[in-house]
């Protein structure tokens, strides 16, 4: 099968790549663009470790074909910090120890940012349901949920 020539924007940069129809966006990010921050935990869209946004919407990169990226804007964990300044969520995760092994962390951060970009005053229940597509086996979610709530409060100026 012939490869597709895909032009898209990844983390604000114009990107071109060739991809087989069977290759997922996650394959392209990790294997071609060397953006290995998005992790493959299940390859079936159930763990959220590969969370990225496409045109601002949170998705699992393992359930998007690489060819679908044509003309889209993709954001990954690698672009969450601005220069040498961590995003407030990244900073809070560090301070609150909201990570243990760190494998699910990029996905949680991308998902949490996607929530706070839409809603800076989520209830605990809203945070828990928004993050229900991201699995963490280490933390019991407690410190993750608290961190997201705390950052939301800071963003509101509380």
């Amino acid at each position: 099968m012939s490869k597709h020539h895909v032009t898209s924007t990844v983390n604000g940069e114009p990107v071109e790549f060739l991809c087989e129809p069977q290759e997922t966006l996650l394959d392209i990010l990790r294997d071609q663009l060397d953006l290995t921050g998005s992790k493959e935990g299940c390859s079936s869209g159930d763990c959220g470790a590969c969370s990225v946004t496409i045109d601002g919407r949170l998705v699992c990169a393992c359930l998007v074909l690489g060819a679908e990226a044509e003309g889209r804007k993709i954001e990954t964990i690698e672009n969450m910090a601005e220069g040498d300044t961590l995003h407030p969520l990244q900073q809070k995760f560090l301070e609150e120890a909201a990570l243990q092994c760190g494998f699910c962390t990029p996905g949680f951060l991308v998902a949490a940012k996607s929530l706070l970009d839409r809603n800076d005053n989520p209830t605990e229940t809203e945070v828990r349901y928004w993050l229900a597509g991201n699995l963490c086996r280490c933390t019991g979610y407690d410190k993750i949920v608290k961190s997201v709530m705390d950052v939301a409060a800071e963003m509101r100026g509380e």
């Binding site: 869209g45 959220g48 919407r57 699992c60 998902a111 597509g133």
Partner: peptide, 9 residues
């Protein structure tokens, strides 16, 4: 339906 990721796609 499903989770946020699924609902977005």
């Amino acid at each position: 339906i499903g989770d946020m990721h699924v609902r977005n796609r």
